[in-house]
Amino acid sequence: MPGGPAGAVAGASERSRARVRAWAELLRLPALFTVPGDALAGAAALTRCPGHRILFAIGSSCCLYEAGMVLNDWADRAEDAADRPHRPLPSGRVSPAAAFTAACAFTAAGLALAARAGRPALTIAAPLAATVWSYDLALKHTPAGPFTMAAARGLDLLLGAAATGGRARPALPSAALLATHTLAVTTLSRQETREGTPTAALAALATTGALTWLVQRRPTLGPPPNRRSPDGQVHGRRGRPEPGSAHRSPAPLTAALAATYAGTTARSYLHASLNPSPPLTQQAVGAGIRGTIPLQAALIARSGGTAGTATALLTAALAPVARRLARRVSIT
């Protein structure tokens, strides 16, 4: 029959592309580019070059992040059927059973990769996985929801530090800054599907201003005893600058990346505060998610050194890739 086999092949190819697109939407692939910078920023907080274990930490972070994405839609499938029927689960393009299985598989893979990064990394990844599941299944629609999501981002950064140096304490200041940004974005996202108030967008705007300033300051927890920090100061036993050490202004790269972070988010937050409608709020949330990347890059850049500069630039380069992909697959 003329054209029969060719038509069957074309139909199979079209169905395959449709399945790939459905899973890309479910996984929110553009948002995945915001994940590697977490582990890299955690490693940079130790002021040392990350070894091969950081690759396992990044892989673990990506898997646990995608587990959260899939589980989020699985838990919200009834709500999405009313508010967002085009999403993969309510539209029937992905079955609930397949989504739940994928969430379990991603979680198992994330923990396995963390174990390869070392026992300290696994001790961070286990509570991170528990936080992800608790958020999606129980806490998302409670007042604790945004704080739980913020905790997950902070733990993700600490995972990179634990994989790099076996300890997480030096990365706590960076984790706190990243968690604060996540708290603001998550709070704003709670009114994506309904007419809201300007309060959340204004709070996110104020948070952006504060973080832009704070990320350019020195971390409050210093390097190990008698170690020379990236800014050239010699630190004593308690990690404080020795008397007489000169204060230096932020490095140009750190300042530039901090400004990029502010520029990525502030305008959308302002628009959402002036008109807190669902479309503008969704745009603001998307900008906040993309803004995570230059914030991570700024956190990495302030560690100083050639390795820190190269890693910061590599992280920042993920932003245009995520933005380009977001034109085809929604980031929220």
Rank of each mutant, 00 (worst) to 15 (best):
H235T: 10
L55H: 09
A105N: 02
A246M: 06
A317R: 14
F106G: 12
A316Q: 09
L188N: 04
L325M: 02
L46I: 00
T254F: 01
P90L: 05
R238C: 14
G236D: 03
S16G: 07
F106K: 13
G154D: 11
G118L: 03
P170V: 03
T199V: 14
T142D: 09
A176E: 13
L159P: 03
P85K: 04
I331F: 00
T260C: 01
L314W: 10
R237T: 13
D156E: 06
S249D: 13
L205K: 05
P243R: 01
A144M: 14
H247D: 15
T180Y: 01
A151R: 10
A121G: 01
M149C: 05
A126N: 08
C62M: 15
T107C: 12
V285H: 08
I58D: 01
C49V: 12
T107E: 07
A262I: 12
R327S: 03
P143W: 00
P243Y: 00
R217M: 07
S268A: 13
L137H: 11
P120F: 05
M149L: 09
A97R: 05
T265W: 05
P85Y: 01
L295R: 12
W133K: 11
T182R: 10
L314E: 09
E25F: 02
Q283I: 04
T315K: 10
R228E: 11
R17V: 11
T164R: 02
D156H: 08
C49L: 10
R77C: 11
A163T: 11
V215I: 09
A105G: 00
A102T: 03
L113C: 03
L158R: 15
A81C: 09
L32M: 07
E25Q: 08
R153P: 02
L295W: 02
G4S: 10
P96C: 04
T332C: 06
T260I: 05
R21K: 15
G244Y: 01
L270N: 07
G288D: 04
A130M: 04
A251T: 12
P170Q: 01
T101G: 15
Q283K: 06
G7P: 07
G59A: 05
R237M: 06
H247Y: 11
T187F: 11
N226A: 15
G305A: 04
G308H: 12
A322P: 07
P219D: 15
A114L: 08
L299A: 08
C104H: 15
L64Y: 02
T311M: 15
R194C: 13
A175W: 13
P173F: 00
R77A: 08
G7C: 12
G286M: 02
S249R: 13
L295D: 06
G196Y: 00
P294T: 11
G59E: 03
G244M: 04
A255W: 02
H247I: 15
I289C: 09
L122N: 02
P219R: 13
M69E: 13
A176Q: 12
R237K: 10
S61H: 06
L183Q: 11
A117I: 06
G160T: 01
A162V: 11
G244V: 01
S95C: 08
R19E: 09
G308V: 14
T197I: 00
A138S: 06
E192P: 04
R302V: 05
L122Y: 03
T186P: 02
L155Y: 12
G236R: 05
H86I: 14
R84Y: 04
Q191A: 05
